[in-house]
Amino acid sequence: MLDFINKIFGKDAGSSGNVAKERLRLVLVHDRSSVSPEFLQVLKNDLIEVISKYMEIDEHTLEVNLDSNNENQVALVANIPVKKMKRGVKGAAQ
């Protein structure tokens, strides 16, 4: 019901004003932490290397980004789609 009213009043999360705010928030997390895109790329490559030892992941859709929670703390958010677990490795580790 609330969603419906919000939609009528144009205040749903997809409205351009909210999109602007969300984009701005992410941009500023990066600006303020002064983390360069190159730095993130290096981090991403290292992550892929380590995780690939344990599972098969989709390197192309892997996302690593900075975000912030409500208290303005910076968080590292990674979205890593897993294709297959590598059972052999798990056994070897035991």
Binding site: F9, G10, K11, D12, S15, S16, G17, A20, K21
Partner: peptide, 17 residues
């Protein structure tokens, strides 16, 4: 008007950030 329609960031949004 645009703020009301959700098509512009509001003062609260800006202060928040």
């Amino acid at each position: 008007k645009m703020v009301r329609a959700g098509d512009m960031m509001s003062i609260d949004d800006i202060i928040d950030i």
